[in-house]
């Protein structure tokens, strides 16, 4: 314990201490202090994140079967995953879903944030809260609630369409589940993204608007030429969040499965498939492999996105 001796020496022999090559003692003291400050986080991080990840990686290299037990196959499970129609169709679904969902969410949340930034009455504060509210509702409750709203027998949709003598679309059917989920997720997350964009907008120096106005810019020009470019970093952040979140789609379809098991199979999204393999079919090995394979897909998608946005210099 160098720290200990160094500090007990200090009050007794101040001069000696000064002449000492203090660099080493100090830096080592700093590094130890630093490590100790990091330690609480590091312990939790290593034991609850890194260790389980490594263990899952280890598990994913074995193949388990009911007869014949477990054997080492290195990347065999990954080869299987990338030729498994269940996994591939799940990946295709979440990619397609992201491509439709994310632009939609962005447009909605950006538009709302820009309007709320413009209007400063009590009404805007109220609306801000109301639009944010769905995010405060747990995803499980939200999904269940929409499940009931979509219901043919007691949902409002059926009544509204019934008034015009029409049958309501069944958003839990195979053809329309895509849009049913699209609506739920947009409803849930647009408010959250709106808050982030709104905060970024509030951070813009108002003198810029004044300068623009003096230069004769219209309100539209201020919005499109000043506000939007200045919050690009917030938009990119949201996009990355949304992309990662959507590729790992799980909660909403898993809940709606209780209402429409025929429409939403256990392999509907890759995350659900991993869950089914691990916990329903007791195949932790293949489940781990699917999780890592999904991780790879997420990484690739995010990388592509970052690459594209960097190349253009700025997004939008």
């Amino acid at each position: 314990m160098t720290v200990h001796t160094a500090s007990t020496d200090a009050p007794v022999l101040p001069e000696v201490r000064q002449r000492r090559p203090r660099r080493r003692a100090d830096s080592s003291r700093h590094s130890v202090t630093g490590w100790l400050f990091v330690a609480p986080f590091a312990v939790v991080f290593l034991s609850l994140l890194v260790a389980p990840l490594l263990y899952a990686l280890y598990l994913s290299m074995f193949q388990k079967s009911m007869i014949g037990g477990t054997r080492f196959v290195l990347f065999g499970n990954y080869l299987k995953a990338f030729s498994d129609p269940s996994f591939l169709s799940g990946v295709w679904f979440v990619i397609l879903f992201s491509l439709v969902l994310i632009p939609l969410q962005m447009i909605v949340s950006l538009a709302v944030a820009l309007i709320l930034d413009q209007v400063t009455t009590w009404f805007s504060r109220f609306s801000r809260l109301m639009i944010f509210l769905p995010y405060a509702i747990p995803a499980v409750i939200g999904a269940l609630m929409w499940g009931f709203l979509y219901s043919k027998n007691f949902g409002p949709l059926a009544e509204i369409f019934g008034m015009f003598g029409q049958t309501a679309p069944d958003f839990l059917s195979k053809n329309l589940i895509f849009f049913g989920l699209l609506n739920i997720v947009t409803w849930q997350w647009a408010g959250y993204y709106m808050i982030i964009i709104y905060a970024a907008l509030q951070g813009i120096d108002p003198s810029l608007y004044e300068a623009a106005r003096i230069d004769g810019a219209s309100q539209w020009q201020i919005t499109l030429r000043i506000k939007v470019p200045l919050i690009t970093s917030a938009l990119v952040l949201i996009l990355v969040f949304a992309l990662i979140g959507t590729l790992q789609f799980f909660n909403e379809p898993q809940i709606l499965r209780y209402l429409a098991a025929g429409t939403i199979g256990p392999d509907f999204t890759p995350n659900m498939y991993a869950y089914q393999q691990a916990f329903a079919l007791a195949n932790y090995n293949y489940g781990s492999a699917i999780s890592f394979a999904l991780g790879a897909v997420v990484f690739i998608c995010v990388y592509i996105f970052m690459f594209v946005t960097r190349k253009r210099g700025s997004f939008l």
Binding site: V3, H4, S7, T8, T33, L36, A39, P40, V43
Partner: peptide, 21 residues
């Protein structure tokens, strides 16, 4: 006087690690 917090942190970290195991 810097030792005391350091020791405290060390003890806390060890205790935390210990409780986890």
């Amino acid at each position: 006087m810097k030792t005391k917090p350091l020791i405290a942190i060390t003890v806390a970290a060890i205790a935390l690690a210990g409780s986890l195991t």
